[in-house]
Nucleic acid binder design. Structure first.
Lengths: 199, 199
DNA sequence: GTCTATACACTGATAGAC
DNA sequence: GTCTATCAGTGTATAGAC
């Protein structure tokens, strides 16, 4: 209970938690929600199964936690974009460059795959599908006004701005899957391909 | 053993098989490979679990069968495109229009989702990942020469044609996921968005 | 060809020792 | 904070009757 002991405990706690989180990310991404087992996650993290349950109340909560932080992180990037200086189109270009760059970091692509898992097998996890769909709405709320502004200036093509946004996000999701496959084709992917969808 | 009896048997067989196949497609697509259960598939098909095993030796084979026929069907469309008349760019435009049109038929999007499942959770099914990667190569072999021709005529952007093809396919995969979500944004998606990636 | 009943393995989750 | 041992539930696959 001394201050020293407390610090040590928190350090151990943080370390174990980080190990479990990144192991869970890896295992869930490669095997899917139902295909991943808590045993496997514990093993990948180098800890016992009991310890995983010490930090996360259930498998479902573990997955939900990963999905939530993945969504939150992407959303944060989008928020930064919206409040950045420059014209709407310039900000979109900056965002496209940022996405392409971060997507090629292995951990980022895992996060996108986790979100994809939530969408394409969420039917088995009660409430998850609705939760993700709800959070995803926030993306559109932020991005659509930007597209509309770019349409007014003639830099983006006319048409339903929500459909343009949907196409933009769909491409990003598809690219994440590509990176996940590690076929070595990532290098040739340019931000321009992404922005061209809106033209 | 009479001709009449034989015909009847084959009819029953074909009917049951079709029911099981489409039920399996639906269940696998919505729950993922590991999330889907043979009980659920049998129930969705309106038959007993034992009958499913009468037609398919295992869960793994059932899934593999669906993935294979999904890949085969897409590949067939690509083959038709390549041997069609017109310039390379015209054929690419035709293909884009075809993809967008068929993608919005519910069954087609399920097939794409099945392929996606194979890629993003195939780690649990031995050999599946390699099998899909191998088959996917055929797409590139067919599509890349078309892109190269379009590059020579200046209609496609310069750069690694394989990367362009990868971007093209990634976008299609992403769109399939979008359609799968049924958010009603599909209507605004145009073939031009798809071809613009290559420009 | 179709069904019911069941064997056997595995998984998520808990309890209790250290 | 961390581990081992264990239970109850569920899933794949098979056997055998009709």
């Amino acid at each position: 209970m001394s201050p020293r002991g407390k610090e040590l405990n928190e350090e151990m706690r943080a370390e174990a938690l980080t190990k479990i989180e990144s192991a869970a990310l890896e295992v869930f991404a490669h095997y899917g929600y139902h295909g991943a087992t808590m045993r496997h996650i514990a093993q990948a993290a180098g800890v016992s199964q009991g310890l995983v349950y010490h930090y996360f109340p259930s498998k479902e909560d573990t997955f939900r936690h990963l999905v939530d932080s993945a969504v939150a992180e992407s959303l944060e990037a989008m928020r930064l974009l919206v409040s950045a200086p420059g014209t709407a189109w310039q900000r979109i270009e900056t965002y496209a460059a940022l996405v392409i760059e971060t997507l090629f970091q292995p951990e980022t692509s895992l996060r996108f795959v986790i979100m994809l898992q939530a969408l394409t097998q969420g039917a088995g996890v009660p409430g998850l599908l609705d939760h993700v769909a709800e959070t995803t709405e926030a993306y559109y709320d932020l991005f659509v006004p930007l597209i509309e502004e770019a349409q007014r200036s003639g830099e983006a093509a006319p048409g339903d701005p929500r459909a343009l946004a949907a196409a933009f996000f769909s491409f990003i999701q598809g690219l994440a899957t590509l990176v996940f496959q590690r076929k070595g084709l990532e290098k040739g992917i340019t931000p321009r391909m992404l922005t061209n969808i809106l033209r």
